[in-house]
Amino acid sequence: MNNEDIFRAVGEADDAVLDEEKVKRNNSFRRIAGMAAALLAVGAAVLIAVNPWNKEKQTSTDWRPVMSNETGATPEPFVVKAPMPEPDATPNPEWFAEADYKPFKNAQELADKADIIVRAQIYGEGSVMAQTRFEFDENGDPIPDESSMEPRTLYEFSIVEVFKGGNEALKLDRFMTQGCSFLFSDYYLCCPPAPDIDCGEYILFLYKPEIGSQWLWDNCAMMVGFLGDEVKVSYSAMGNPVIESRFEELTYAWLEGMRDR
């Protein structure tokens, strides 16, 4: 048996599993619903998005700061984008059982376990080649695998404010997203997820790796980190919308807590 047999078998699966008509209808519906919601949200959301530190409640679905071009030192005005799609209603229990899912209990835990928390202004992007599949040697070190190198987007940022981590935090100036590239480092860095990262302000959380990649992976939609010129860490939460929205929710809750101080 070989891979072509799998290819063939998928092609001969039942109509019911291959038919994407239903999918198209669902997508159209989502788009229309999303646009309608966006129109309704615009009036309020513009005011909120202008200042991410606004006292008004921010949610993942009603604003997203966007700015700048690729070289972009100068932010363009904030604009409102359509809301992110609603998370699928119910997490798949099998998923969580398999992943030994241990969510952050609350925003406090999210922040407490972080070694570094910064507010950063993302101002530019570029491309890097990064390893995307990993085997580990007997010492647990990743084995280099040229064949899995793929281009990933690199984002540069400047630190606006350090909440936790002091001088160590100031060494950071870039991160990477779009995929599951993963290299060991001194820190994991995670940031609020978005369908695409646009330039703008984000809160970045860093965790030391001994927390365990699985634990972080379960909790964060993106964990990424660069230190100097060397790629350090990047990870993705498989696009799981439940986990993504959970992480966003906690991030915003933490922000609100900070504002109330």
């Binding site: 070989n2 891979n3 047999d5 078998a9 998928v10 001969e12 699966a13």
Partner: peptide, 22 residues
């Protein structure tokens, strides 16, 4: 999932595979 190097599945193996994939 299954390496490319293996030979093609026999008729019986393929039937099983197809049902499982479905």
């Amino acid at each position: 999932i299954v390496p490319a190097e293996g030979g093609a599945a026999s008729e019986a193996e393929y039937r099983e595979l197809k049902a499982a994939v479905n």
